[in-house]
Nucleic acid binder design. Structure first.
Lengths: 215, 215
DNA sequence: AATCGTTTCATACGCTTGTTTGAATTGATT
DNA sequence: AATCAATTCAAACAAGCGTATGAAACGATT
């Protein structure tokens, strides 16, 4: 019983790594079971089949995301610009950092771009949650813009963040390994926030710095 | 002879579609040959094996890109801001529009994010070319910034563009099918250019419009 | 100590994949 | 009309995949 739960857990761990690395079809049950030190038939016994194993993993990823890197929640009166900075920072931590095993975000991404019917709903509201929060901040920040314009602005911000997850190999190739190594969540988040707030015509933290700032 | 060249060509066409849709491993030779109306063994006969067929396709994509949507070239004295607008517009056309069969960009992308050793070099300088051009424009636009900062700015711009290729399913899901249908290369390019130029502190076309602009 | 439900294991089945092979077909050249 | 290289074809191959099965091993309960 205790042992059973144990191999179940080991399989989930191994599957997480495998699915994140190679995707659903490319990852093989044989590889997963070998990494988990379990028998080939273990997946069938504990989960039924490959797809249900994957489904359970997605649900787990969804749950863990919320616990480990919750979306920020601000006290009333927080300036909208500060909220945007917080939002971007949280997003970047989720994108590039490794506080929890990073297979979670990796799988959510893969699931979004190559959807599996089984868990569309789950992944959908994961992204919708983020987007709605971002929109509410933007509405506060530039109340005069139309909804359509706000959507575009939202994508401009998300696009900047996503780039460092989705195109990381390209980034490293273009700036070199050293500079790439310095791209921490904090550094990137600050740049993206500065860039975006300026684009929105919101003055920087100390009046309007920049020009001449970095060297 | 003439017939042989013909099936060779048909296979290349079919393979382009298949690889772009499903990627290298997921696309099957059987499917490709069926679409091409050729025998299963035709790939082996004309190309040797699956990988060499893929390689030939990448080379072709690389060549065609240059011909069909060349990077813009400006007369001396063109304002840097105008160059940036042109660069972004060209990029967006390559990203979302379908002037040539769009498998070309699709395959280049896939090759970048899931590299195949065989054609790293080819794909690398495809991206490097773009990036260097963008950097040269930015240097002209904000000459006071350091190279590191320029890299970040470059990624902010590319990230915004890439988003509409890489995350298009998410985009459609978040704004609905109607609004998504209105996202032409022109519309998106103009937004991204406005957004980015403002972020760089470069005044818009007519002084400093925006706020109250779109409705 | 014997029993019984739970979990592991080795093995095999059916299917799809990329690749190979040797015969059939074709179309131009002699 | 005969010949011959180039091309097509049906069929088969080994290898890998997800899944299914029935026997073995295990642990708690009687």
């Amino acid at each position: 019983m205790a042992i059973a739960e144990d191999t179940r857990e080991r399989i989930l761990e191994a599957a997480a790594a495998a699915f994140a690395e190679k995707g659903f079809e490319a990852a093989t049950i044989r590889d997963i079971c070998q990494r988990a030190g379990a028998n080939l038939a273990a997946v069938n016994y504990h989960f039924g089949d490959k797809e249900q194993l994957y489904l359970e993993l997605i649900q787990r990823a969804h749950r863990l995301r919320e616990q480990q890197v919750p979306l920020p929640h601000w006290p009333a009166g927080t300036p909208a610009a500060e909220k945007l900075r917080g939002f971007i920072r949280t997003t970047m931590v989720r994108m590039v950092e490794d506080p929890a095993p990073q297979w979670q975000m990796q799988i959510m991404m893969r699931e979004m771009f190559h959807p599996t019917k089984t868990c569309q709903a789950l992944v959908q509201d994961f992204f919708r949650q983020h987007f709605e929060l971002l929109l509410s901040i933007l509405r506060e920040l530039v109340p005069l813009e139309s909804d359509e314009k706000l959507h575009l602005i939202g994508f401009s911000i998300i696009g900047q963040c996503l780039h460092y997850r989705v195109a990381r190999p390209v980034v490293e190739l273009l700036v070199g390994a050293d500079e790439n190594a310095g791209y921490t969540a904090d550094l990137l988040a600050e740049h993206i926030a500065d860039f975006s707030l300026r684009a929105l015509g919101v003055p920087g933290r100390n009046g309007q710095p920049r020009q001449e700032a970095a060297r």
